[in-house]
Amino acid sequence: MERKTKVHAEEGTQDILITREFDLPVELLFKAYTEPGIVAQWMGTKVLKLESKKHGAYEFETTDPQGNVLFRAHGTIHDIIPDQNIIRTFEMANAGFDVQTEFIRFEALTDDTSKLTIQSVFRSVACRDAQLKLPFAWGINMAHDRLQQITNALK
């Protein structure tokens, strides 16, 4: 069984395809996306709002120990079919990226295994690329901050 998360982002297209298979029944995989307390745990963010219903809204927020907001995102659920589909928008606040549409598909493979497929569609190729390189940019910033800390300590 292919356990690894796969990311497909073909050059010049404006979507990202993420696939992953889980050792979980599809009901539990779906629950992990719809129960606020569970989403908060694996996404590592506070869930301010999550209305898992058609036309429902959601809002996530991550703060550092001092209470500064590091990340805030929100969106609207366009459609939701239990154990099958969630179609929703996603937008990060103050990131300079446009809203994206996420087509999240839940599939049972066997009674105990399931597959998740997320297709995120962006407004442009540039927006897609910016989103993809975000963790990379954070990595650089983190390395830079560490370097700064080390050099500050030397002073």
């Binding site: 690894k4 998360t5 796969k6 990311v7 982002a9 993420i18 992953r20 889980f22 050792d23 979980l24 029944p25 539990l28 995989l29 629950k31 992990a32 569970i38 745990q41 694996w42 996404m43 590592g44 998740l116 993809l132 390189k133 975000l134 963790p135 990379f136 954070w138 990595g139």
Partner: peptide, 25 residues
């Protein structure tokens, strides 16, 4: 390699999801 940090970020999240839901089960 720039796609790799993005992929591993999701891989870590999904590993966590799986662990949490197996305990839940």
């Amino acid at each position: 390699d720039f796609i790799e940090p993005f992929r591993s970020m999701w891989d870590e999240r999904f590993n966590k999801l799986e662990t949490i839901m197996r305990q839940y089960k």
